[in-house]
Design a protein around this nucleic acid. Structure first.
Lengths: 140, 140
DNA sequence: AGAATTACTGAGAACAAGTCTCAATAAGGC
DNA sequence: GCCTTATTGAGACTTGTTCTCAGTAATTCT
């Protein structure tokens, strides 16, 4: 399943190292993010995890984001999406259908290459986000 | 001033051609967008244009977006930004400071080149959005 | 020009996403 | 087990965006 076999464990450890407790609700948020390979919104997580409060979902995401374990992606929808960050640095970007909102991940080596050559005076660059917009087969 | 001398006029014409009326409030939204070279939020426009209702601002933006005269940009902030689309196709992308939220535009020819080589089965690509994240000089 | 038609508008209600508050609960240390 | 303190869930609140509707103004008709 081309799974990250350990992002979940890795994150749990990083959370512990940051001095945070091993609570069950937070762990459930981590596990849900672990099994998703593309963006999920906070409200989707909240809806999927019965018994975990919305505030807890948002808090957990924020902590994971601060630790660099999760990244926020803006795909033009009303809500933000979140996806795990692989420790390897391996990542993908997104193609969005502007008609139906369908999202597909993609990877492109030449694109990454071009981005890594960009330098900006007065800025230290750390990450990047690329979104391609278009129309999917069904909508055309 | 490297201004678009005519985006405002061009847009007014396109609006008319689309069968919409030449109303003063919509024209004021167009003129404000015309004089800004980087992203503005709907609420900033609303705040700046006294006497123009919020609903009118959102409606005007939507119409301009539908006609391809304005593009939405998501910069990680709570509100979306909007910026004019030059008929020439000339455009820029954004660098965001993840600490203070400062946004700077940038252009990169090699990046555009790499993006235009991307093809995706089942998708017709029409536009793209690149956001670089990092930390600005003041925040480091 | 004046009347008729109908798009457009502003105020504010409604809604949606995300944040904050606070009393109750549960981890981890002793 | 007891104590300390991080964490939690419910729900109030805030912010951004959309919707509603009666009044206004741009166009068209005559």
């Amino acid at each position: 399943m081309s799974q990250s076999p350990s992002w979940s464990e890795y994150s749990a450890r990083r959370i512990a190292e940051a001095g945070l407790r091993r609570s069950i609700p937070r762990r459930r948020v981590i596990d849900l993010l672990a099994e998703r390979d593309c963006a999920v919104t906070a409200l989707e997580i909240d809806a999927e995890l019965d018994g975990v409060g919305r505030a807890t979902v948002y808090r957990a995401i924020e902590q994971l984001e601060d630790l660099g374990l999760v990244r926020k992606v803006d795909l033009g929808a009303s809500a933000h999406g979140y996806e795990k960050v692989e420790p390897s640095g391996h990542h993908h970007h997104h193609i969005v259908c502007d008609d139906c909102g369908k999202v597909e991940p993609f990877e492109d080596e030449a694109l990454e290459e071009a981005i890594h050559h960009i330098r900006r005076k007065g800025f230290s660059l750390e990450s990047h986000e690329v979104t391609l917009h278009g129309h999917c087969a069904e909508c055309r």
